[in-house]
Amino acid sequence: MANDPISQFQIKNIVPIEIGGLDLSFTNSSLFMVATAAAAAGFLFLTTANRGLVPSRLQSISEMSYEFVASMLRDGAGSQGMRFFPMVFSLFMFILVANLFGMFPYFFTVTSHIIVTFALAMLVIGTVVVYGFWKHGLHFLNLFVPSGVPGLLMPLVVMIEVISFLSRPISLSVRLFANMLAGHITLKVFAGFVVSLGGMGALGIGGAILPLFMTVALTALEFLVAFLQAYVFAVLTCMYLNDALHPGH
């Protein structure tokens, strides 16, 4: 069990709950969702409690993450996009902390499950569609009609645009899910090599050095990926929100 690279994604019931035939148990995944939200919110809440004019170190981390997301959103969707700031900030912080939590040994990685990333992606796309139609009405469909395209090519271009729009939630969710999943599997496999080679005597211990270095290097890489994927998710959210705000190309 310990060497199985898949078992880390196993969902285990902690408090079984079943309502109307649906399994709504509080699982290890739920536990880490709660932990993620609590840790992220707790950090942001406690570090800014003093409201220091001159920030402490921890307060400036909170401020930096705020300004990081704010500038990302302003660059991506303009100053009108700032109305979505709480959502983008929540997404970024939640995904970042969930990804980073996944780096602790024996911790469950919430974002390594497609349903979670897909739900977050659908939240983004749902917001884009609902806000787009609410704000622009049918003009929102201009999104699929780029200007300056010759009439003959128009049906083809519109089809491509529609497909690209529909694939957004999939690409957005699969990118995050696959990165987290693959990273953790790779890490586990290399770490498993260290253990199994180490159990094979002197030669094995010599041979285990290489995967050990790989594990260390991959751990560093995974920290980078954890941040990068949260960033990518947030940046793409900003770009999609830009479409909702300014549907004309």
């Binding site: 399994d23 709504l24 995944s29 969702m33 959502m87 939640f94 919430v110 349903i115 739900a119 977050l120």
Partner: peptide
């Protein structure tokens, strides 16, 4: 079989977080 639970708890935790 785990989707419903994950969706529910994600909605609760992320909703509260938001």
């Amino acid at each position: 079989s785990t989707f419903a639970s994950q969706l529910l708890w994600l909605a609760i935790t992320f909703g509260l977080f938001y």
